[in-house]
């Protein structure tokens, strides 16, 4: 993370002129604002910040920012970001995407990114549906949801993933839940995640008003957690057992050392030749 003292940035400085493709009322607008607000709160330099995403409605975000961006392929945002961060530890790297992108096609990378604990922040706009492909159930969709022509009658019958539990057990160093309807709260959680070393995971409940109209009601059921973040993973796990999915706030803040590959003993390529010469 590069702090800049010469210029003070505002959220507007991180927004590009590109008009989002999102439906009116989509939760992702608010998440975009929260991300740019978090960047401004941390006064990150846009040119030293990178936003990496996969594919989906939510994954459109990079082009809507004024940072370096990579709109990669479906499910691969975390690994592109990992390569970038390992090659360029000086940059602030934020990864953004959807529940399908991150937990289904990119599920393996999600596990290993938590485990690797590279210093970056992963914001998932979880709308419990595949928005971009028009309404199929995702790994976080409720078992009985069948309000779409794309879902089997009576729902999939499959228990949804609990992404926070997975992140916690796989080793993420910061685990939080946010709600798009509370943009300031979300911005604060994202900023805290960026500041926290290691892999930070923030699941943002971001309504898909087109395919999950009922998610408009989320604003009536979410509540801010009163308890301070757990610093002990087993304590956090216990809280998750009682969690109904609507508690907003930081669940867990760990102190695992973030991953840094071995580098640098100052040899030259010519030194490497020597081992082959007879």
């Amino acid at each position: 993370m590069t702090e800049c003292t010469a210029i003070t940035y505002t959220a507007k400085d991180y927004k590009s002129e590109v008009k989002p493709v999102w439906c009116p009322g989509c939760g992702d607008y608010a998440v975009l604002s929260s991300i740019t607000k978090a960047f401004a709160d941390l006064n990150l330099e846009p040119h030293n910040t990178a936003v990496i995403s996969g594919i989906g409605c939510s994954s459109r975000i990079p082009a809507y920012t004024n940072c370096y961006g990579f709109h990669t392929i479906h499910g691969r945002s975390l690994v592109v970001a990992t390569g970038l961060k390992l090659a360029r530890p000086d940059l602030t790297v934020l990864v953004a995407g959807g529940d399908g992108d991150g937990f289904s096609i990119g599920g393996n990378h999600f596990l290993h990114s938590c485990r690797r604990n590279v210093d970056m922040t992963y914001v998932v706009m979880d709308n419990r549906v595949y928005g971009m492909t028009k309404g199929q159930p995702s790994p976080t969709t409720e078992a009985d949801w069948d309000a779409s022509a794309m879902a089997p009658p009576g729902g999939t019958g499959l228990t949804p993933f609990n992404p926070l539990a997975i992140a916690l057990s796989a080793g993420a160093n910061f685990v939080a839940r946010a709600f798009a309807g509370d943009p300031n709260g979300t911005a604060a959680l994202i900023a805290e995640g960026i500041r926290h070393p290691g892999f930070s995971f923030i699941a943002v409940m971001s309504p898909c008003v087109t395919f999950r109209e009922e998610q408009r009601d989320w604003k009536n059921v979410v509540r801010k957690t009163e308890t301070a973040p757990a610093t002990d993973a087993s304590e956090a796990a216990k809280r998750l057992l009682q969690d109904d999915g609507y508690n907003i706030g930081v669940l867990y803040k760990g102190d695992r050392r973030s991953y840094k590959p071995v580098t640098g003993t100052g040899k030259t390529v010519a030194d490497l030749d020597a081992q082959f010469a007879l």
């Binding site: 360029r88 393996n108 100052g266």
Partner: peptide
Amino acid sequence: KIGGTFVQAEDELASINMCVGASFG
């Protein structure tokens, strides 16, 4: 030895995409 980075990835999807990310950087 020459100041570079080697990572063992979780699969080939990861390895190639990490390389693209590093190259972007």
